[in-house]
Simulated assay, not measured.
Amino acid sequence: MTKRDIYPDHPGIILKEEFLEPMGIRPGTLSRALQVSRDRIAELVKGKRDVTPDTALRLGAFFDMSPEFWLNLQYHYDLVITEKDFSTKILNSIKMSRKEFVLLSH
């Protein structure tokens, strides 16, 4: 199995497993500290909600780290998932279209 065959963890799972659990923080406690709804954090740690710029700013402030950390996790996750869902057939079709376009434009 190659690295490309493995799906990355959702940023919410990383939040839960790498931050909340080791620090003994419950999602409800975090939601109160961030001044957001419980559902927002509960869905995030279940991988059912994405990290938004607003959430990234709040997490960054709470954990004293950059919001870019959280946005980069989300970006990487989205890119890998999209890439896996974007079939080789579609990619090859786009490449063929590009070649045809170049030939027709000369």
Score class of each variant (00 low, 15 high):
78 D>C: 00
71 L>V: 12
67 P>Q: 11
105 S>T: 11
68 E>T: 09
34 L>P: 09
60 G>E: 05
54 D>K: 09
87 S>F: 02
72 N>W: 00
45 V>I: 03
16 K>H: 04
24 G>T: 10
29 T>I: 10
30 L>T: 06
14 I>C: 06
65 M>A: 05
67 P>I: 01
96 M>H: 07
61 A>L: 13
67 P>Y: 03
95 K>Q: 13
105 S>C: 01
74 Q>M: 13
95 K>E: 01
31 S>A: 15
47 G>L: 09
56 A>M: 14
16 K>F: 15
13 I>D: 09
20 L>Q: 08
91 L>I: 15
31 S>R: 02
5 D>G: 09
32 R>I: 05
26 R>Y: 03
28 G>C: 04
32 R>G: 04
13 I>A: 03
49 R>L: 15
71 L>H: 04
7 Y>G: 04
50 D>C: 05
25 I>R: 03
82 T>S: 15
88 T>M: 04
2 T>A: 08
11 P>D: 03
80 V>G: 01
16 K>A: 08
100 E>Y: 01
64 D>G: 05
103 L>T: 09
69 F>D: 04
54 D>I: 11
79 L>G: 07
76 H>G: 10
32 R>L: 12
105 S>K: 13
106 H>L: 09
7 Y>Q: 12
46 K>F: 03
93 S>G: 09
85 D>K: 10
25 I>G: 00
104 L>F: 01
28 G>N: 14
43 E>T: 11
52 T>H: 01
52 T>R: 00
16 K>C: 00
43 E>F: 05
11 P>I: 08
52 T>E: 05
96 M>P: 01
97 S>E: 00
73 L>M: 13
81 I>Q: 10
1 M>T: 13
54 D>E: 15
91 L>D: 05
8 P>I: 12
37 S>N: 11
53 P>S: 09
26 R>H: 12
3 K>N: 13
24 G>R: 08
23 M>C: 10
99 K>A: 00
17 E>M: 13
78 D>Q: 12
90 I>R: 14
82 T>R: 14
17 E>L: 14
42 A>L: 12
84 K>A: 15
11 P>K: 08
46 K>D: 09
98 R>C: 04
45 V>Q: 00
101 F>A: 00
8 P>M: 07
60 G>F: 02
45 V>A: 06
